[in-house]
């Protein structure tokens, strides 16, 4: 299956990255990582690309990395998935508040509401 994986360089993204690779190793998915910096700041694109490349290197799979350099990465992520005919779009499945309540990030909410392709939330 052709899977597009959104990675924004957060703790939540680490889980997405690890799980997407583990599943691809088992299921033979063809992965494309779409990387983008969080609009509110955080790791820059070079740092995120280095992390993703290293994870791919350590795995048994091949994967493509593509950069989203857009002020509205969520919308571009959905656009790539649809334009390029991906079968599944994978994003993070939420973070926890200080007292442990789960909440969905902005990107995930946008993807869930707007994507026409199947969405998978990784936890």
């Amino acid at each position: 299956m052709r899977v597009l994986v959104g990675i924004e360089g957060s703790d939540e993204s680490d889980v997405v990255l690890r799980n997407a690779i583990a599943r691809a190793e088992e299921a033979g998915d063809s992965l494309t990582f779409a990387i983008f910096a969080k609009p509110e700041g955080g790791q820059d694109l070079d740092t995120i690309e280095a992390i993703v490349s290293a994870a791919i290197e350590e795995s048994s799979i091949d994967a493509i990395i593509t950069r989203i350099d857009d002020r509205d990465p969520a919308s571009e992520l959905v656009a790539i998935a649809e334009r390029e005919g991906f079968e599944q779009l994978v994003v993070g499945g939420g973070r926890d508040t200080p007292l442990g309540k789960r909440y969905l990030g902005r990107i995930t909410e946008f993807v869930l509401l707007n994507a026409e392709v199947t969405v998978r939330l990784e936890r």
């Binding site: 939420g94 926890d96 508040t97 007292l99 442990g100 309540k101 789960r102 909440y103």
Partner: peptide
């Protein structure tokens, strides 16, 4: 009651 959990808590 698990049905009354709020945003994943209590676990």
């Amino acid at each position: 009651d698990p049905a009354q959990r709020a945003q994943g808590i209590p676990p």
